[in-house]
Design a protein around this nucleic acid. Structure first.
Length: 551
RNA sequence: ACCCUUGUAGCUCAGUGGAUAGAGCACCAGUUUCCUAAACUGUUGGUCGGCAGUUCGAGUCUGCCCAAGGGUACCA
């Protein structure tokens, strides 16, 4: 709907001879008496032109003209707002677009022909997924869904490392537990993975091999068995939440030379060196960020000869550019926040357009038990597991639990409270509206021979009561909300919006009889209901929650 | 010590420099001979962490202070 106003406002500005680079903001006023939409453009221009905002607004209104039957009233209000009142018939007529476009309502082709990659979850296979990881996983999945509505060809990627020190410790942990199974007295180190799943993996090995592995120090089998079992558990958990990935990218491939060519890590070093940003001292290789005004250089290759995490991170991003992605979204927890400036700087030096990389940081999930905050750690084995949460509240409520809050909120999680409140999860409020409509449609088919396929939306302009207009007007906001969610990488906006739609539907349902109304009104209200169902479905698909036919 | 994020109702959280700061939960009082009561209606509840500043206008921007979480490694 915002898109509807822009050309007319621009035309009015042109007539007034005003040129500006200010963005024309179209807002929904807080109070309906201020109209359906408003703009504060007069304030912005008044500041530039040193004119009175109210007077400038009046001038613009004189120059504004909309097509017949769209905007009924345009007025100056307060210190200089321009408020627009929409024609009710226009609103209802516009709402028929929902039925015409169906699943495509809200979609655009602005990303058509462009490739996007969204990287999320990216947990190393050292243990089952924690609740904290779930947050990033759901966030990333929703962002990928949003991009798909805009026509992007989206790749969902999981980046992991199965060769680092963490994996070494994991393998050792399994081996210690295995030796215990073999009857050895072992003092299990506190530095190693404490979780019960380690014993389970050791048990698997013991059943398969007996104690024949006890004699060797060779860790490969321990590592590979652990990795296999853990990865399959991770995938299973993600699957339960409908989180999928197209590609699992192994960090280790960046270390390997390919067909006579140097490794990707080495290529990054060479390229940075050619630009004069490589220094070698103290036995290590450094990214000379001091040349960029930073206090210290950053290590790329440690004096041990192993790359630090920064080098493969840069090399990994280079592969994204080489793979031809036009938009790259990385979803990370807050612990990675300071790492990205360096990667972006390196990419810029190497000649890549770093503005194509977008970062979505989600704040941590902290856990409260009995009012006390507990630090969660996979290593300590005291983390709340994502699987347990799904067991307790279900997949839909779990997904919504994460995205009903902004990604910047420091989510404080109380398992007991979450279980107790699962019935109050807003997901059911949204789904109930959908189920109610489905039930209504079933009833209408049975009682009055309603034919869904014949509903075109032509009858909608017959409707004129306040709940009906409010509802239709909310439906028209859906495309704007997709844009806003995507721009901010914040699916929470969509949740809030769908809540408004559901709320207005419930209100409409309460106040407007449908099946009992006269035939033409009944048909129109059925059409409005179908349009709501469509918007809810389209929204649910973005959020990755199911649309139940009955509850 | 420095950097990032956050601080809004009893609780969990929305709030794009705009108009009288909102929602859900909880609490209290109502609504069904009638399409799903997982709903709807109403009431209660606020020094927007604190102080100063910027301007027509600040919960929103700036500075300082306080508090919480995270980060400042040749860990990832």
């Amino acid at each position: 709907m915002r898109a509807f106003f822009l050309p007319y406002i621009e035309a009015a500005l042109q007539k007034a001879g005003i040129e500006t680079d200010k963005e024309i903001q179209i807002e929904k006023p807080t109070d309906k008496k201020f109209g359906d939409f408003s703009t504060n453009i007069a304030f912005l221009l008044a500041k530039e032109a040193k004119r009175n905002p109210r007077e400038l607004a009046s001038q613009l209104i004189g120059l504004l003209s909309f097509p017949e039957g769209t905007v009924t009233k345009t007025e100056v209000a307060g210190p200089g707002f321009i408020n627009f009142h929409l024609d009710q018939v226009f609103v209802m007529r516009s709402a028929s677009a929902v039925l015409r476009q169906g699943e495509a309502f809200g979609c655009t082709e602005s990303g058509k022909g462009q490739k996007a990659i969204v990287e999320y979850v990216s947990a190393n296979p050292t243990g089952p997924l924690t609740i904290g990881r779930g947050r990033g996983g759901v966030l990333g999945d929703c962002i990928a869904n949003l991009l798909e509505t805009q026509g992007y060809e989206v790749t969902r990627e999981y980046y992991f490392n199965d060769a680092g020190r963490q994996m070494q410790i994991l393998a050792e942990s399994v081996r210690f537990r295995y030796l215990e199974k073999c009857g050895r007295e072992i003092e299990f180190p506190t530095t190693h993975y404490q979780g019960d799943y380690i014993s389970d993996i050791a048990e698997t090995l013991f059943i398969e091999h007996g104690d024949e592995l006890a004699a060797t120090d060779e860790l490969t089998l321990f590592k590979e068995t652990a990795e296999g079992i853990i990865f399959s558990s991770i995938r299973k958990t993600l699957e339960r939440l409908s989180i999928t990935h197209d590609k699992f990218f192994n960090e280790h491939t960046l270390y390997q030379s390919r067909e006579g060519e140097p490794s990707r890590n080495q290529q990054v070093i060479d390229a940075l060196e050619a630009k004069g940003f490589i220094g070698r001292y103290d036995g290590a290789t450094w990214f000379m960020t001091t040349k960029l005004g930073q206090e210290k250089d950053k290590v790329l290759i440690k004096s041990s000869g192993d790359p630090s995490y920064r080098l493969p991170d840069i090399a990994y991003h280079v592969t994204k550019f080489e793979r031809g992605f036009d938009l790259m979204v990385n979803v990370f927890g807050a612990d990675h926040i300071d790492e990205y400036p360096d990667v972006l700087e390196a990419l810029k030096i190497l000649g890549y357009d770093a503005s194509k990389v977008k970062i979505a940081i989600n704040q941590f999930v902290t856990t409260t038990v009995g009012g006390q905050t507990v630090k969660m750690s996979t290593r300590k084995g005291n983390a709340d597991l994502l699987d347990d949460l799904i067991d307790d509240v279900g997949a839909d409520a779990t997904r919504l639990f994460f995205i009903m809050r902004g990604k910047d909120s420091h989510l404080n999680f109380d398992v007991e409270l979450a279980k107790k409140q699962s019935k109050d999860n807003p997901v059911f409020y949204l789904q109930y509206a959908h189920a109610r409509i489905c039930s209504l449609v079933r009833m209408a088919e049975k009682e009055v021979g309603f034919d869904e396929t014949a509903a075109t939306g032509e009858g909608l302009p017959l409707l004129s009561s306040e709940p009906e207009i409010d509802l239709a007007s909310a439906l028209l906001d859906f495309p704007d909300l997709i844009q806003a969610s995507l721009r901010l990488l914040e699916p929470q906006k969509m949740v809030e919006y769908l809540h408004t739609v559901a709320e207005r539907y419930h209100k409409f349902y309460q106040e407007c009889p449908i099946l009992k109304a006269d035939e033409s009104i009944r048909a129109a209200r059925m059409e409005l209901s179908l349009a709501v169902r469509q918007v809810l479905r389209n929204g649910f698909r973005i959020l990755g929650i199911s649309a139940p036919e009955s509850m």
